[in-house]
Amino acid sequence: MTDPRQSQAKSGISFTVNGEPREVRAYPMERLLDVLRHQLELTGAKEGCGEGECGSCAVLMDGALVNSCLVPVLQAEGASIVTIEGLAAGEQLHGLQEAFLECGGAQCGICTPGMILAACHLLNGKSDPTLEEIREGLSGNLCRCTGYSQILEAVQEAAQRRKSA
């Protein structure tokens, strides 16, 4: 873990997180992941590898799927960020969360927040993806438990339900 304080001083950074405006004081090169987890206490994003390979720290930033371990918080200035904590509407789970529960898409749960956000990003861009497109769309998120099948099924199920809703 490199020390982000080497060069510059802390500065104020404003962004929107899960619909709420937030302001933090952070070193510009601090990882967005650390700011979310340590300052905002949003611990749903997880660190799996710290180098952008596993996707368990994935969040949506202005609609794009990013690995928050690779994003200096400076870059998030003015951005709108969605984390796993912002997906459900109160007690009402997001369709993907429900489908993951029913289809067995979550086992140990550690990749689940990033995986669900990756799926969310995929369905935002394509409401009715093919199985191949889902495989491709989630291939930046590693899961060691499920072998992915039940995750793919959950995404298909959520897409179906959204279409027929």
Binding site: Q97, A106, I116
Partner: peptide
């Protein structure tokens, strides 16, 4: 049946040691 700790896992509420 639904996984006991499933809801916490899909909402990011589960507490792992680093949390």
């Amino acid at each position: 049946v639904p996984r006991k700790e499933g809801r916490d896992k899909v909402t990011g509420k589960s507490e792992y040691v680093d949390d």
